[in-house]
Amino acid sequence: MKPDVRTIPANWWLRRSPPWWLRRRPYFLFMVREFTSVFVGAYVVIFLMMIRRLNEGQAAYEAFLASLQSPLAIVFHMVALAFAVFHTVTWFHLTPKAMAVRIGEERVKPALIIAPNYAAWAVISAIVAWFLLG
């Protein structure tokens, strides 16, 4: 390339507004998927706080459980649950991309890779439910 020719820098597309992830639906859904992990992370923090209160004794633990009954805490949990489900389902459906399982010349159908994720989810949920409710 001749040095005296002025080219437009490669980031001309990204520099435009609105930001790239607001321009097309697939980009936006990607951002939503990434953003939902914030709520998954926040829930883990709450869970760790609960374990800490449990360690501090019965009174501290019960006070913590009472604080979770507030409307704000309930709304947060519902939002976090919805986002955690979205996060989980979107990733389940991406597993066939990462796992190329072949039998002979044929690649195993994506649905057969996705299904065991749901099965494992159901089994683990059942075990947790059995622990808590049984």
Partner: peptide, 16 residues
Amino acid sequence: LANFPVLRDLVFQLDS
């Protein structure tokens, strides 16, 4: 095409 330097009109530089 986005993410490439533009040389002229629709022609971009593909060296990278």
